[in-house]
Design a binder for these strands. Structure first.
Lengths: 343, 343
DNA sequence: TGCGTTTTGATTGACGTACCTCAAAACTTG
DNA sequence: CAAGTTTTGAGGTACGTCAATCAAAACGCA
């Protein structure tokens, strides 16, 4: 009934402890046949490494890297803060976290920043990057060389990563549409969507979901062509001012990317009734927007949960531990001024 | 820079390892003066027990009890399932979980079920119970005798428990009001609230929040007197049918307690347009209600998170470990048919 | 002061894994 | 089949805590 140990593995596979250890920790010098025998024993006995004993015995801490795009947004500030905080909380896991921020505006920059990582001394990589072929190749390379890679915030499909840590962005867009639509469905008029970086998968997914629900559930509303805010507050502000001025039937705006403070500024000194506003991510200015009733809904994700989950997932991948899908699922959060958590 | 160990404590407090161990694990036979010296050393060095080493060395598992009201609702079924699941996920914590369900319909029953626990062999208690003076006294008794107690789902204020695991129910009610109000605010008509057990603090808090937001933000809507659904599907069904029949200006219903299947049944065969529906807790029937568009919004909380968090909190209290408020905060979830998680 | 009692010290062996060394055995290759 | 290389075995130490033992010291009390 007790959990099997390495000793049980050795006995069952008819090899020595040293060999089991070599297999478990990927050390060289074991014939394939023997590796297979040990792995069969792992299967047969349902062995799972005792995480407590492992991290106790381990001298060197794990070295995990978070590779993030360099952007001067409140969202990125909140994300890096959450990662740093997770490091201290997870001190028991003996994980050292490096946050690497590098410009990823072009596909070349993005894949270069992946390739320039010191892959020798890395136990895992959590990455937020645009989905381009070069990025995909660079990530697949890392995976093939045995390094756990976990996409966070924005998914990288078809990169053999196995697990994405972040919300379902299609569902987030759908939710935004449902709430915004529900608030204004009794009227006829137009709805605007302000987007971000075109290469960014998360933004594309959200728009996809938003458009689908608007089309199917609220056909009476007119969706304006998506404006490119480029995650930039000034651009977003200009776009928002133009929208407010030119469309007197504007019922709602969904800001599905960064640049929230631009929208806030535009709304702040707009005379007359405001459209319903849904924005993405509970940044400080988004919170202020809710508190001042300029914004109605904020769709978000718990960045602390994202950071902690990414660390757990990298560790589980590194040590071939099972992970609980249930615990690692990041939930879409819906904030109004009524349910803001304490800052 | 390394974390201090028991050896450092012993040296700093000028006592032996054995004495440090006695203090740390509450074993008898240490003078108060010496206890104080050791505790000062803990303070000075910022010592925190290494959870990995502790759970590795520990022979006997922790014994935690979840004391829940006996009720044949889908919510309770989901809660017990989540607790059982958390036990297997947290196998590494060496925690054995007992779920005790006992009737708590009267204050006497409730406090009796607390008193009848075998407090000798318990390392912590997670409790969901109505807030009555007798319950409060029983809980305070437990706390005074050194047993960690954690209220879950519904809070027990003023019981010296230190931490509540569950959502802010006032905020949940406020959120329900904001969304329901937002959906119907352009019309005039009435809104119904169906409640549950009167003694239940969570339900009272939700109604409080709901009423406040309705009053302040949507004064045009008429709130009908709260109907007592008693967490019972048949009663709720009867109430809902009566509401639908008698109030032809009924714009929305907030079901803030159990009995969701009754509401579902009443709506299912109601001819004509339906009011907007907000229900509490993502039970199977609530999910079906969203999928079939009978319900609009479900307010919930992640029961898996509640169960895991309660276990972590009990363990932290038992071992005097610090806990991360951030990680233990349970978030209010807002579900629509657009963001239902995979079952 | 001497007695018994309480408090403290010194020491030891788990717990399950990581990581290291050295030697023995099993293979390969010419 | 000998020489070299690769693979395997045997064994030990360490990680930080728990839990227990036994002896020594400090204390209270007559």
């Amino acid at each position: 009934m007790d959990r099997p140990t390495v000793h049980d593995l050795a006995r069952h596979a008819k090899v020595s402890l040293a060999t089991v250890d070599r297999v478990l920790n990927g050390r060289p010098g074991v014939r394939e046949k023997t590796v297979a025998r040990v792995q069969k024993a792992i299967e047969d006995l349902g062995y799972a490494r005792d995480a407590n004993a492992a991290s106790l015995a381990r001298k060197k801490p794990y070295r995990f890297v978070f590779l993030l795009p360099k952007a001067n947004t409140q969202f990125m500030a909140a994300l890096t803060a959450a990662i740093k905080n997770a490091e201290t909380v997870h001190a028991a896991l003996r994980a050292e976290i490096d946050i690497v921020q590098s410009s990823m505006l072009t596909p070349e920059e993005a894949s270069n920043s992946i390739r320039s990582l010191d892959t020798e001394n890395i136990d895992g990589l959590a990455i937020m990057a645009p989905e381009t072929p070069t990025v995909r190749d660079a990530v697949i390379n890392l995976r093939r060389s045995g390094i756990p890679v976990v996409p966070i915030i924005t998914d990288l499909p078809d990169t053999e990563c196995g697990h994405f840590v972040g919300i379902n962005n299609v569902a987030a867009g759908r939710t935004a549409a449902r709430l915004l639509g529900g608030f204004v469905a009794h009227q006829t008029g137009s709805i605007a969507v302000i987007g971000g970086q075109t290469m960014s998968r998360d933004f594309l997914d959200r728009r996809l979901g938003f458009d689908a629900v608007m089309r199917d559930r609220y056909p009476g509303l007119h969706i304006l062509p998506t404006a490119e805010g480029a995650d930039n507050a000034e651009r977003v502000e200009a776009i928002a001012r133009a929208l407010l001025q030119r469309h007197d039937d504007l019922l709602g705006i969904y800001l599905s990317a960064a640049g929230t403070s631009g929208l806030y500024a535009a709304l702040q000194d707009h005379p007359g009734p405001l459209p319903k506003i849904v924005v993405q991510d509970l940044t400080p200015v988004a919170r202020k927007g809710l508190e001042t009733n300029l914004f109605d809904i904020v769709i978000g994700q718990d960045l602390g949960h994202v950071a902690r989950s990414a660390i757990r997932v990298m560790r589980a991948m590194k040590d071939q531990l099972p992970l609980s899908r249930d615990q690692e699922r990041i939930r879409i959060e819906v904030f109004t001024s009524e349910n803001l958590p304490d800052p």
